[in-house]
Simulated scan of single mutants.
Amino acid sequence: MNATTRLQGFGQRLKTYLLSADDGMLMRHFFHGLVVTSLVFIVIDWNELNTANQAHPGFDPMQPQAAPVLPPALTEGEPQNAPSDITADPSTLKQAIRFELKPGGILSAEGSIEPGAAARFAGEIEARGEYVKTVLLNSPGGAVGDALAMSKLIREKKLGTRVAAGALCASSCPIVMAGGVSREAEKGAVIGVHQIFNGSKEKLSPEQAMSDAQRTTADVSRHLEEMGIKSGLWLHAMETPPDRLYYLTPEEMTAFALVTDAATPVAKAKTK
C-alpha cells in the first residue's frame, strides 16, 4: 500500500469518526490536540535555543540583551553617536581584556578592563617584555585601579601606546593610554571620557561612595599630571555623567597632550 492510499484511508476514517462523534467528545479531542501541538512547538523552540547556545557560547536566551558598549555623547541637545565608526565587534569589547603579541613589537590589548586585568597585563609584560614596544588599545574601559596600574607599568617600561582607526578607547582606557612615552590616535580612532563610578556589586553608604570617588579622582588627577596630560582632559571627564561620554576631537587630544608628536616623545616626563 503506497503513501497516497494510506492517506486516503486515514481521511475516510477521520470523516466517519467526526460524523458519528458527539460534541463533547469532539471538544475533548480538540483540546488534547492543542496540548500535543503546543508541546511539539515547545520542543522545536527549545532545540533552536540549544542550537543558538552551542553556536554562541555564553549566550543565554533567557537573559535580556546587554547594554550597548558605547553610551551616547554628552551634548546640549539630543545624545549623538561616536564621531567615527567603530569597527571592533561589540561582543569582543565586552569580554575581559585579552593580550596578543603581534609583529613589530605590538601588544594588542582588546576588551574590558576587569578587576585583575593589571595583574594579567604585568604577567604578559614579564613574559614578553623584551619584544613589546607599543601597546595597541581597543577597550571601553573598566576598573579604574587596574587601568592606573597598567598605565604606570607602561611608563615604567617606557612603552608607547596607540589607538588605531576604528578602535575605541573610552572611560578608564585613556588612563592606560596616558602611560605611553609616545601616544598616538590614528585618524578615526574614538576616544571618550566620563566620571568614575563604583561598578562593583558591593553596596556602599553614600558617605563611603563619595570618599572612594574623591580618593580615586585625586589618584587619577595626580597620575595624569605626572604623565604630562593637561588638566582639561580630566575636567571634561568629571563634568560628564557616567552614562554619557565626552568624545575628544583630534584638536583636543593634541591640546590636552593625550597624543604626542612622534618626534618628541614624553620619556623625560615624571615616571614615579
Rank of each mutant, 00 (worst) to 15 (best):
Ala119Ser: 08
Ala164Asn: 03
Trp234Lys: 06
Gly199Met: 02
Lys272Arg: 15
Lys268Leu: 09
Leu101Ser: 10
Thr254Leu: 07
Gly58Thr: 08
Gly199Ile: 02
Met25Arg: 14
Ala185Gln: 04
Ala88Leu: 06
Asn50Lys: 12
Lys203Val: 13
Ala82Thr: 07
Val132Gly: 01
Arg244His: 07
Glu78Ile: 14
Pro265Val: 06
Leu93Ser: 05
Leu49Trp: 15
Ser112Arg: 12
Gly77Ser: 01
Arg155Pro: 03
His29Tyr: 05
Met210Ala: 15
Ala119Gln: 13
Phe256Tyr: 08
Lys272Ser: 14
Gly129Asn: 04
Met1Phe: 05
His194Pro: 08
Glu207Tyr: 09
Gly116Trp: 01
Thr161Gln: 02
Ile44Phe: 10
Glu202Met: 15
Phe31Ala: 15
Ala122Phe: 11
Tyr247Trp: 11
Lys230Pro: 05
Ala255Arg: 13
His194Cys: 03
Gly142Phe: 01
Met253Thr: 09
Tyr17His: 00
Ala3Thr: 15
Lys203Cys: 03
Thr249His: 07
Pro61Arg: 04
Asn53Ile: 13
Glu100Asp: 12
Gln208Gly: 04
Pro140His: 01
Arg155Ile: 04
Ala218Met: 09
Leu258Phe: 03
Pro103Tyr: 04
Leu34Trp: 06
Lys270Val: 15
Leu159Lys: 01
Val40Pro: 04
Lys268Ala: 15
Leu7Ala: 13
Gly232Ala: 06
Ala189Glu: 03
Lys152Gly: 02
Thr16Ile: 09
Pro115Gly: 09
Pro83Met: 03
Met62Asp: 14
Gly145Glu: 11
Tyr247Ser: 01
Arg98Asn: 11
Glu225Ser: 12
Met150Tyr: 00
Ser38Asp: 13
Glu225Gln: 10
Glu207Thr: 10
Pro72Asn: 00
Glu239Gln: 12
Pro265Arg: 01
Val266Ile: 12
Ser182Thr: 10
Ser205Leu: 08
Phe41Glu: 07
Ser20Val: 07
Leu7Val: 05
Ser112Glu: 06
Gly179Asp: 03
Val69Gly: 01
Leu70Lys: 03
